[in-house]
Every structure is written in C-alpha cells, then in structure tokens.
Design a protein around this nucleic acid. Structure first.
Length: 253
DNA sequence: ATGCCTTATTTCATAAGA
C-alpha cells in the first residue's frame, strides 16, 4: 500500500502535473492541501477516471484540503470543531483513517494569525483525542507549516524572529506526537535533509534552500509497517510545479 | 543542472504564501 501527501498550491493550476503524477507513482491514498477551489469546482471526474474517490473541503480562493483513495473511502469528516476554514478533512481508506491537514501559516510573530495557528493546532490535538485511538491505524498527513528542528530549515539564523520555528509552534506539533504519532522520516531527494518546500523566488530550489514543513505522522501500527518513505523532489522541478514536493510512503500493513 | 515567483480574484492590482 502506497500513501502520499502533497501541497499542490491550487489543484486547478496543478491538474496537468497531478494527473500524470498519480499515474506514474500509483499511490493508493493521497492527502492534498491548498486545493484553492470550492467543492463545486473540485475535479472529481478527472480523479474518478484514474480510479480515485475523493473527500474535499474547500470554499474558494484560499486553503482547501482533500483525501483521495482508490481502496475505498468512507466516513468522511469535514470539520475541525470551532474552526470554519477548510483546513482539515479525514476519511477511512481501507484499513487506514487518513487526515489531510493544512495548518495556518501564522504570518508573523504578534500577528493575530499566529495565535490562530496555535489555537488551531490545539484544537486538532483535542479533536484527535476525542475522536480517535492511536492504537488504531491512522495517519495525519499534510502541510504543518512548522519546522520541528533547526535542521529542518536551510539556515536557522534566517528565521530569527519568524514563524515556523518557534517553540510554541513546535509544542503544538509535539502534542500530536505525544498523543501517539511518529514523525515519519523520509529519504531526502538531495542532500541530507528531507526538505519538502522551496520558495519560488530567488532560485531557492536550485540552491537547495528549503524547509521540511510537510509531514506524515503515523500511529504505531502504521509506523511499524513502513517499508520506504521518500520526498519526490522530481515533482518540484520544471514548468508548472507546486512550491511543495510530495512525500510518498510505502506500507506493508 | 532543476533556473531566479505563483495563485485566484473584488483582474491590469491585490492578498497571501513561508
């Protein structure tokens, strides 16, 4: 079984890259973030043609998350209690309960959006504890907008006074891990750090100045079944790429 | 070499991304 996560930065703009990627990589389950479309314009038919059912939460220009599955998709859940933005969707896909999440960016320290980011992470931890059991096969996949370790950014000193590396943000992610999830370490596409994001500007991709902000967080039964995990850096290259690369994980459940 | 930002929309400018 192969699962993957990818912040596509608009599923409409990315469809010419996404569909061939699905055919090439053949994932059974995919978590997508930043679909940037309403449910009414989500490309259900194009995905169905490749064998995927989909659960999508989106309301237009910003955010938007989806779970795709070609091994069955039931029990779709579209809400994070108290937070109306479409940043979380989950569904049962065969033996796995799969969450696709897009954590708020935070923008800047002191910005109300930073407090919203921390509150959102806290609400997610609470909802997980209320609705799920870490002894069951479960994955959280998506764009956490947090670099857990200093090594997860190309140069920690650049981030002094910035979001993504602060201890309150990291605590928000650690609380998810403490509940019973493993931070799956993917093979890097280049170098020794498995970056998943490179800014479009200033040739950051070409200098490998990136960040590891996309994650696969797996409950114990899933973590122990992993046979491989890698960042698909090829998908970040060339014309019409997202600024994020997918993470692909193989399981022998 | 992978090449110097991209997206959708209240569109020829703006907000957001991280």
């Amino acid at each position: 079984m192969r699962i993957a996560t990818w912040n596509v930065n608009s599923i409409g703009a990315r469809l010419p890259r996404l569909l061939p990627w699905l055919e090439e990589v053949q994932p059974d389950v995919v978590a997508l973030q930043e679909t940037k479309c309403a449910d009414s314009t989500f490309p259900y038919a194009d995905l169905k043609a490749l064998g995927y059912e989909a659960a999508h939460s989106g309301d237009g220009r910003w955010n938007g998350v989806a779970v795709l599955s070609r091994i069955g998709l039931t029990d779709p859940r579209h809400e994070l209690l108290g937070h109306p933005e479409p940043r979380l969707v989950s569904a049962q896909c065969g033996p796995l309960h799969v969450h696709s999440l897009y954590v708020p960016n935070g923008r800047a320290l002191g910005d109300p959006h930073y407090d919203y980011k921390l509150a959102w992470l806290g609400a997610l931890a609470q909802q997980l504890a209320d609705q799920h059991d870490p002894a069951q096969p479960l994955v959280l996949m998506g764009d956490l907008n947090v670099a857990l370790h200093d090594e997860d950014v190309w140069d920690r000193s650049v981030f002094n006074g910035s979001t993504h590396v602060t201890e309150p943000e990291r605590d928000g992610v650690r609380r998810l891990l403490d509940w019973g999830l493993t931070d799956v370490q993917a093979r890097p596409g280049k170098g020794d750090r498995a970056f998943t994001y490179w800014d479009y500007r200033a040739g950051m991709m070409h200098k490998n100045l990136g960040m590891r902000i996309d994650y696969v967080l797996a409950s114990a039964p899933v973590a122990s079944a992993i046979t491989d995990a890698y960042v698909d850096r090829e998908a970040r290259k060339g014309k019409g790429a997202s600024d994020h690369a997918p993470i692909v994980v193989d399981l022998d459940l």
